[in-house]
Amino acid sequence: MSSKVREDLVLSHAKVTADVQAPFDHVDIAQWLKTLPTHEYQRCAPGDHKAAGYTVDDDGTPMSINVEMIGTGLVVQQYRFEVAGPHYCRMVSLSDVLTPLGWTNTQVIWELRMEQLDGDHCRYTNTVTSHPTEHFLDFIAQHGQTFAEAAAARQDASGRHCLVETPLYAQSIARRAAELAASAAA
């Protein structure tokens, strides 16, 4: 299975925002990701999110493990933290995808950003971009699907999924920030 990523091709791209009230100085997206319980992850996309966990790669790089349904595919994501800050994280995964026709893989880039608009009024931006691998391109060709068809299906499924999870992620991050603020004040 060739996992060479075709960065020149975009399988899907979704950028969704949600405004939320959160104590900005206590927002810590990296820490939220590292401590995100499975059940909270499931509440952020009911029915689609299956499990979440935290580990490190062989080289010690922190990783967020997420298992979720995107359309008809069960996606196992092993996100490596490329940027891990309190207000911005960039995660990159070579994700395994179980489709109704078998296993393949894609690269998924997940960016999470919280911006302070005014006081505690914040805006969360959830950006998910997927690129095919050589294996993915071979896989769809073997099953009679063009890249344009696969990209349209993935764009639809990923776009719908991000519309559900983005406001719920924003609320979860805001709750965690409020808990940290209350703990700091005690």
Rank of each mutant, 00 (worst) to 15 (best):
S2G: 12
K4C: 03
R6D: 14
V10K: 10
S12R: 01
K15W: 04
D19L: 11
A22N: 02
D25I: 11
D28E: 12
Q31S: 11
L33R: 00
T35M: 09
Y41M: 12
D48N: 13
A51D: 15
Y54H: 13
D58R: 10
G60C: 04
G60K: 06
S64R: 09
I65Q: 01
G71T: 06
T72V: 14
G73R: 05
G73A: 10
V75Q: 03
V75P: 00
V75D: 05
Q77D: 12
Q78L: 14
Y79V: 02
R80P: 08
F81A: 04
H87D: 12
S93L: 04
S93C: 07
L98P: 01
L101N: 13
I109V: 14
W110G: 08
E111N: 15
L117M: 13
G119H: 01
H121T: 02
C122N: 02
N126P: 03
T127S: 07
V128L: 13
H131L: 10
H135T: 14
F139C: 11
I140V: 10
G144D: 11
Q145C: 00
E149N: 09
A151W: 01
A152G: 06
A153G: 14
R154H: 09
A157V: 10
S158T: 14
S158L: 13
G159R: 02
C162H: 05
V164E: 01
P167D: 10
A174S: 09
A174V: 00
L180M: 14
S183F: 10
A186V: 15
